[in-house]
Each structure stands twice: as structure tokens, then as C-alpha cells.
Design a protein around this nucleic acid. Structure first.
Length: 799
DNA sequence: CTTCCCTACATTTTT
DNA sequence: TGTAGGGAAG
């Protein structure tokens, strides 16, 4: 979490802009040679000629085509630092945009390191946070509330659900999910409902219904003073177009705009960049007085993996045409991976036909072979991953240097189960789990209702949470009162006593309303954590969870306590932070982005999250048909190519060691289905991979026959390796991992004890470490090798 | 209005 | 696997 995004409380831009910025009179023109000694020689040390050129080039537009691991972030950060050191720009004149908070945080950190902290006022942020910042600053000048709420995708879906129901549009096959996807796509192309209607075939009732839904959705957002994720970008573009004098403030302020991962920009983001780098016009700017900002973009079309989100690869492919006179610099030398890894990556990606040929190379050397493994089941595969990580760890590899990637979040389940049982420290990155929990969303709805009373979605959510006897009928009545009186739902709560409800209901409503009012008063003066604890206590939410006899509610109450801890943490990092700042931060920053404590644990993440990161050892799991490429992508145009790029991204994250694994069967909603090896595996030259095989797989049901297609390839490498593994293991290592809940909390184990494990058979305890529920037994199994087991949950018995 | 039970259904990736 | 929604009973 970059506290900097919110803590910077520069005034609104209605004034003369940043007072810290120098008066721009004789600004060195971009193309002017930089005379005299430069202060930045150390910024060029250790860079190759192309990298240097990318740091030093000065011109209106620069495209850096940066292959994976070619030092792109290094170039970008050094470029920014050299602009500052050479006094070509003030920090406040730099805008660096990334896609993820993690990337932004890392970039900021590295620029700070280079400059010794002189980054005050520099905007290094994601597209979304930059836009929120602009929208909040300008809101009041252009007619909306600066306290607007940001709706995430699930909020959008809740809203759409109501709208679809209202229109009975589910008859046309509309679901919240597909309507939301269509709307999102349109917004990414900067189309609104009216624009869409103009080109739509309005004799098609389905189209008519969609237009209605889209219109209603947008109307409700506006009524609630809310923006969805896509609006954040699109509305900023609209704002700039509608108010040139507002745009000019930013065009003048940002002299250098740098965009990372340019291949992933969609049309709206592209337009935003265009607006920002345009020559300023509007009040006080004579044409030609100040040129548009210098634009630097970095990208690699082979790593474009967000087409599903509207990313348009043409933005980068056509950059030169788009920005005439643009300079293009290619970075092809890879500093990250061994040649074996790169050769595999090159081989895979070369199967994408419509690309400019580009080959990564390194002078690091071949390195280890890639290790392949076929497990019987997802659990078996996970066990392999856990075992190999332990082996690496014993050989001195830190857990923090290991990452496990997968295509879908659902795959984490098996991995987690095995990792917990193996007492392997891990952390799931990018999973927003915590903030998606119902009780956390409830707590946020309370905070949101306090900050933005117009937000009907939030008020609806809390109105009967905890249960206070206000059911659908009451809510409908309140809502229609609000509708008729042209006011908000929040306001109708206040009027409850005049609406003719029964005494109990009236009382419940007034109490809630009073709690909210109290919190509003507190929010003006007090700290976020106080507002939250007050709301949780006085609304009765926390008590209802604590009193409940549902055992899960205890955990929910703890989650709310944890949220209180999060707010306190926020207060420490942002002493001046307001409730609005807090809500903004959590809306835009997935919980997993606090990368600070990722050290010392294995990182688990999706392939998408992995982009831009690198690890010594990388496990790519689930390399199977229907998973990679994913079933859903098969029919989409360009789907399989994009999935191949995803695989390519995964491979190129690895520095030294790469493991590819798959399973012969995979569990999906309780059922197990046969899985086939991914087509992409065959694109890797056989000599680069050393295949190991899962014991117990050959004769198991279903497995062999269905893989006949791949028989040649598999038998080639299979024979010798399979033989190397002790046959005995086959029986001792069954295919299923028992899921029985178990509590060995009181089991006492000591070095020397013999135990029996339901999966691994008998073994001897070597050592016991840890305390309480975290006690770990280090066991040498007779047949299954050395393992670590979390005693509390291990399926073991003492002999 | 709430609770409980049954059935249907869903799973791509992210800000 | 798990959750969300419908329907019936309290």
C-alpha cells in the first residue's frame, strides 16, 4: 500500500497549479542537446548501450520495446532519476503510470533509492488511482461530489441484478455478470448508453433491453454519486474533453509522462494518455506557448495478457504511426533467466504467428534443466510442489525466492491444503479474499454510508444488517418514498416516523439513522478507527456476531477486529488521512498489495498477478488443456494466443529454476475430471525438460488411455525416470488426499517416535519444532522421504 | 420477518 | 465445493 497516494494533500488545482513547480519560461526543449557535465553518470553505469540510450534520449515520444527481464523497470527508474538529477524536471512534473499498485510501489521505492528520497510530489501510481485523484480534486468544479464512492465489480453486479429484475430482462438472458461485462467493454471504448443506442439495431428487443439496462445502471450510479472502475478512467477523459481549462492544468503540470506495460492499455487509457500529453489550450495558454508533455511508453507485445479487459495491442504496435517522430528502442538482452529458460520461452512464443520476431538472449549460461512433473491429482501435484520447495529450502534457497503460479484462483485450494499440512510458509498474493468477505463488505457499507449518504447500495446493504426486522417490504417502501420525494434512501430513514410504519420498525429505522448521524459527526473530527468501532458497536453488528451460535460468526467478528487493526495501521501511515482517503485506498488497492511481509514465505499467485515480478525458483502448475489454455478462452478470437503469452509470461519470471507441473485428473466442483497435458508443453524442446512422473499414475483409472495423443512424447522421457523411482512408493502414496477434519492438538510427539500417516505410510520423527498449534514434526518416512507435517492437522497416528 | 431446507448452478484472468 | 435463491413453515 502506497501511503503516498493518499497522504499527499496538495490543494485543489483551481489555483495556479503546484507552487513547487518552477515557472516555465525557458524550459529546455525536449530535443535540445544537454550541454555540460551531467550529474547522472552513475545512472548510466552498468547499463548496456540500448538501455543507456533509453535513459538518455530526449524527445517528444519514446517507445521502449522491452522483452521480459531486459531491465525495463531499471531503465524507467533511471530515466526518471536522470530527469530529476539533470534538473530537467521537478518531481511534481513527472507522472509515471503502472497497472498494478505493486508495480507502482516498487517503482517509487527504486526511484527513491536512486534519488535519495527526492520524490515528493511525483505521481507514481496506477491509472485508476491517478484518475481518482484528478476526479476528487476537480469534482466540485465540474459538478459532482468529491465524496463519490468507487464501486467494485461485485457492487456493480448487485446494482445490475436489481435493474435486470426491474426490467424482467432475465428473460432475454441477461445476467448481472454478462451485462456487467458488456457495459465494461463499452466503457473501455468510451461509449455511453446513448452512443451505443445510436449504432444498435433497435428493432431487436434484446438490444433495446440492454440499452435500457445500461441507461438505468448509469443513472443509478449517478444518483448514488458512484463510479465503477471503468468510469474512473472514462470520466476523467470526458472531464478533460469537456473542460479544456481543467485539462490544461494537468497538461501543464506533467511535463514527462511515462507509461509502463503499454501493451495492456485499452482505448480509454490510451485516450487519457493522449489528453494528458496534448498541447495545453484554454485560459491563459497561447497556442504554441508550451508543447505537450514528453511521453515514454514501455511494453512488450508478447506480454499482452489483458485483451479480456479491453487491452488493445494496436496501441503499442501502432505507436510510431500514432506519435510521429517517435523513437523506438529495443531491449533484447535478458538479465534474469538462464538460457534454458529463455530457450523454452522463445520456443513457446514463436508459435504465435502475428508477431514481430524477437529473441531473448543471455550470457548467464544454460543453467539447470526445467523439471516437469505429472501428478495424478491436483493434490498430488501440490505435494510435489511442496516437496520440491522443501528440498530447495534444505539446499539453502529462501522461501521468499520461490513462487507458485496458476491460471485460476480455484487452484489455490489444493495447494493451500497441502502447504498448510506441510507447514510450508506461504502467502497468497492478489487474492482479495479478505475484502470480499460479507462481514467486511458490511463494515465498509457502513463507512460508505457515512461518507456518501447518497450511496443507496451501501444503505441498502446495512439497512437490515444485523437483522433488525426490516425486510424487503419495508425497504421497498422506504425506497419508493425516496423516489417520490426526490431524495435519497438515507434521507427517508430520517423521515421514518412520518411514514406510518409500526412502532417497532420505526424505532429500528430511527436507531440506525441516529447511529449513522453520530458517525458522520465523528468522521468530521475523529479518526477512522473510531468511526468504525462506533459503527460496529452501536449498530449492533459486532454483538450480533459475538452472540451468534453459528460457530463461523466468531471468525467473522475476528475479521472485523482485524479490519479495525487495518484502520489503525492506516492512521499510523497517514496521520492526516480521512475516512475518504481510507475508503479510496482500500477500493483501489487489493489487500494483497502490501508486499512488505512477503519475505520469508513462498508466494502464490495467478499468472496475471505474476507479470512484472521475478523469482529464483518458479513453479508453473496446472499446465493442462482447459486450464491453460483455459476452456473459456478457446472460442474467443485470439484466445489461444493470449493464453500462450500468459504461459510465456510465467516462464520468463524464473531466474534459475523452473518447474512445470500438471495433474492427470483435476477436481472441479466436487467432481474429478480427466485432464490432458497442455498443447503448449509440446512446444518446448524435449531436451530442455527433465520429466519426472507421478508414482501411481500409470495404471490408474482413466489416465493412460486418454493421453494416447501425447503418448510418443510422454513415453520418450518417461521410461527412465519412472524407473528411477521406487515402485514401493506407488502403493504408499495414494491418489487422494484425505480431507477428513482432524485435530491432533493434544498429540505429543518426540524425536524417535514411530508414526503412521494415511498418505505417506510409516516413518520416524526426527525432530519437533514450533509451539502450540503450530508444532511441526520433521519426519523421515520409510518410503515417501522426508516431510514436515503440521501436527495439529496431519492425518497421523503414533505407533 | 426470519429461519431452514432444498435445488440449481457456477468458476478466467484485474483495477 | 460452496453459495445463492426459492419456497415453506414458524
Amino acid at each position: 500500500m502506497t501511503s503516498s497516494t493518499t497522504s499527499d494533500a496538495q490543494g485543489s488545482s483551481q489555483g495556479t497549479g503546484d507552487s513547487s513547480a518552477p515557472v516555465i519560461v525557458d524550459w529546455p526543449t525536449a530535443a535540445a542537446p544537454r550541454g555540460g557535465a551531467t550529474a547522472s553518470d552513475h545512472l548510466l553505469d552498468g547499463l548496456n548501450p540500448q538501455q543507456r540510450e533509453a535513459v538518455e534520449y530526449r524527445g517528444k515520444a519514446l517507445l521502449i520495446v522491452a522483452g521480459a527481464g531486459s531491465g525495463k523497470t531499471r531503465v524507467l527508474t533511471h530515466r526518471i532519476a536522470s530527469l530529476i538529477e539533470n534538473r530537467e524536471a521537478w518531481p511534481s512534473q513527472i507522472l509515471a503510470i503502472t497497472f498494478t499498485n505493486k508495480a507502482a510501489a516498487e517503482m517509487r521505492e527504486r526511484v527513491e533509492d536512486l534519488l535519495g528520497g527526492r520524490t515528493e510530489g511525483m505521481w507514481i501510481s496506477t491509472f485508476h488511482s491517478a484518475c481518482v485523484r484528478i476526479l476528487r480534486r476537480e469534482a466540485e468544479n465540474v459538478g459532482f461530489s468529491k465524496n463519490f464512492t468507487i464501486y467494485d465489480s461485485s457492487d456493480s453486479r448487485v446494482l445490475l441484478k436489481r435493474i435486470i429484475k426491474r426490467h424482467d430482462a432475465d428473460m432475454f438472458g441477461f445476467t448481472p455478470a454478462n451485462a456487467s461485462a458488456r457495459i465494461s467493454k463499452l466503457k473501455n471504448e468510451l461509449a455511453d448508453a446513448d452512443g451505443y443506442a445510436r449504432n444498435a439495431n433497435m428493432s431487436d428487443p434484446n438490444e433495446v433491453a440492454f440499452v435500457e439496462i445500461f441507461r438505468d445502471y448509469q443513472r443509478e450510479l449517478q444518483r448514488a454519486s458512484a463510479f465503477d472502475f471503468d468510469d474512473l478512467i472514462a470520466q476523467t477523459v470526458y472531464l478533460f474533453r469537456a473542460f479544456p481549462q481543467v485539462a490544461a492544468l494537468y497538461q501543464k503540470k506533467f511535463r514527462y509522462v511515462l507509461v509502463d506495460e503499454y501493451q495492456d492499455t485499452n482505448h480509454a487509457q490510451y485516450s487519457l494518455i493522449r489528453e494528458l500529453t496534448r498541447e495545453p489550450e484554454g485560459d491563459g495558454f497561447l497556442p504554441g506557448t508550451l508543447e505537450g508533455a514528453s511521453l515514454t511508453v514501455v511494453g512488450d507485445s508478447d506480454q499482452s495478457i489483458y485483451a479480456f479487459r479491453g487491452a488493445d495491442i494496436r496501441n503499442i504496435v501502432e505507436f510510431e504511426r500514432d506519435f510521429t517522430g517517435a523513437k523506438v528502442i529495443l531491449l533484447e538482452q535478458n538479465y534474469r533467466s538462464t538460457q534454458n529458460i529463455l530457450s523454452a520461452a522463445n520456443a513457446v512464443i514463436s508459435n504465435n504467428f502475428d508477431r514481430k520476431d524477437k529473441k531473448l538472449w543471455t550470457d548467464i549460461g544454460d543453467g539447470d534443466k526445467i523439471i516437469g512433473f505429472t501428478g495424478y491429482s491436483g493434490h498430488d501435484e501440490a505435494q510435489f510442489v511442496a516437496d520440491e520447495i522443501e528440498r530447495l529450502h534444505r539446499n539453502g534457497v529462501a522461501y521468499g525466492d520461490v513462487a507458485v503460479f496458476y491460471r485460476t484462483n480455484a487452484q489455490t485450494r489444493a495447494l493451500e491444503e497441502i502447504f498448510v499440512r506441510s507447514a510450508l510458509p506461504y502467502k497468497i498474493m492478489g487474492g482479495t479474499k479478505f475484502y470480499e468477505r460479507a462481514e467486511i463488505k458490511d463494515a465498509f457499507a457502513y463507512l460508505t454510508a457515512v461518507m456518501n449518504p447518497a450511496d443507496e447500495l451501501a444503505v441498502r446493504r446495512i439497512i437490515n444488517t444485523p437483522k433488525r426486522g426490516l425486510g424487503p417490504a419495508t425497504i421497498t417502501q422506504l425506497a419508493s418514498f425516496a423516489e417520490n420525494a426526490e431524495t435519497t434512501l438515507r434521507e427517508s430513514l430520517r423521515e421514518a416516523s412520518t411514514l406510518g410504519f409500526g412502532p417497532k420498525v420505526t424505532r429500528a429505522i430511527s436507531d440506525l439513522s441516529a447511529v449513522l448521524d453520530e458517525a458522520v459527526a465523528l468522521a468530521d473530527a475523529g479518526r477512522v478507527s473510531e468511526v468504525l468501532t462506533t459503527l460496529m458497536q452501536k449498530s449492533g453488528l459486532i454483538d450480533s456476531l459475538r452472540m451468534s451460535r453459528d460457530p463461523q460468526d466468531e471468525a467473522r467478528a475476528e475479521n472485523i477486529d482485524e479490519l479495525v487493526a487495518v484502520t489503525k495501521e492506516f492512521e499510523r501511515n497517514n496521520p492526516d488521512g480521512t475516512l475518504l482517503d481510507f475508503l479510496t485506498e482500500v477500493s483501489l488497492v487489493a489487500a494483497a498489495d502490501d508486499l512488505d511481509d512477503a519475505s520469508g514465505t513462498v508466494s502464490l499467485m495467478t499468472l496475471h498477478t505474476a507479470k512484472g515480478l521475478e523469482y529464483d525458483s518458479v513453479f508453473l502448475t496446472g499446465i493442462e488443456e482447459d486450464l491453460l489454455p483455459h476452456r473459456m478462452s478457446a472460442n474467443e478470437p485470439g484466445g489461444p494466443s493470449e493464453e500462450r503469452r500468459l504461459f510465456y509470461v510465467g516462464i520468463t519470471r524464473a531466474r534459475k529454476r523452473l518447474f512445470l507441473s500438471l495433474a492427470m485428473t483435476r477436481a472441479q466442483y466436487g467432481e474429478t475430471a480427466v485432464a490432458m497435458p497442455s498443447r503448449y508443453l509440446q512446444e518446448i524442446p524435449a531436451e530442455l525438460i527433465e520429466w519426472r512422473q507421478s508414482p501411481g499414475s500409470v495404471n490408474s483409472r482413466g489416465g493412460t488411455q486418454s493421453r494416447a495423443l501425447n503418448a510418443n512424447r510422454w513415453s520418450q522421457t518417461r521410461g527412465t525416470d519412472a524407473a528411477a523411482l521406487p515402485r514401493a512408493e506407488k502403493k504408499e502414496w495414494p491418489n487422494k488426499v484425505t480431507n477428513s477434519v482432524r485435530d491432533n492438538g493434544d498429540l505429543e510427539l518426540a524425536a524417535g517416535d514411530r508414526i503412521r500417516h494415511t498418505d505417506f505410510g510409516e516413518g520416524r520423527v526426527q525432530n519437533v519444532t514450533g509451539e502450540g498449534t503450530k508444532r511441526v514434526a520433521h519426519v523421515q518416512f520409510d518410503n515417501a522421504g522426508a516431510k514436515k507435517l503440521l501436527i495439529k492437522i496431519a492425518p497421523i497416528e503414533k505407533l
